[in-house]
């Protein structure tokens, strides 16, 4: 039974380590709610690590095409993301109109966008590290495409 305990610890430890690794970059959280005659509610909370992993398997040519327009702004995006990671949690933009509210903020290492109007509520939260990883993947795909 002592052996069983060790095996159990190994299994649970591996599982916990796996979960920890998957959760280490946080979660991408997308919550869309539409009201009115045909209401919908979509809520996706996926481990952020999945995004760069998925990009890794995306067609390099498609990524390179995406990067073409981004290329000029890559240094700016890189610096902006580095700085965004560094600054304190804060609201960057908030727009309030009758029946509408838009908020872009940094919260706990993520960029959060909340949009609410009479018909829809949208909440998107993405860890900055995930955006950085994704941008680097796209940039790498572009470089690889140019060398070919």
């Amino acid at each position: 039974m002592l052996l069983a305990g060790k095996v159990a610890l190994s299994l649970v430890g591996t599982a916990v380590a796996g979960v920890g690794l998957i959760c280490s970059e946080g979660f991408v959280d997308v919550n869309v709610q539409t009201r009115g005659a045909d209401p919908h509610h979509i809520h996706i909370a996926a481990p952020a690590l999945v995004v760069p992993a998925a990009l890794h398997f995306a067609a390099k040519r498609d990524l390179a095409r995406s990067c073409h327009e981004l290329k000029e702004w890559l240094p700016t995006v890189r610096v902006a993301l580095d700085e965004l990671r560094r600054v304190n949690d804060m609201a960057f933009v908030e727009v309030k109109q009758e029946g509408q509210h838009v908020l872009v903020k940094k919260q706990g290492g993520s960029i959060v966008v909340d949009v609410e109007d009479e018909n829809d509520t949208v909440h998107i939260s993405t860890p900055i590290s995930t955006i950085q990883s994704s941008i680097e993947q796209i940039a790498a795909a572009s470089s690889a495409d140019q060398t070919q």
Partner: peptide, 27 residues
């Protein structure tokens, strides 16, 4: 059964810690 319980307790504590650390990133 003592080591099994201890193992599970340690694992649960570890999971709780990782879970709490991951929570702020979810916003």
């Amino acid at each position: 059964s003592k080591p099994v319980k201890t193992s599970l307790a340690v694992a649960a504590l570890l999971a709780l810690t990782i879970g709490l650390a991951a929570l702020p990133a979810t916003g």
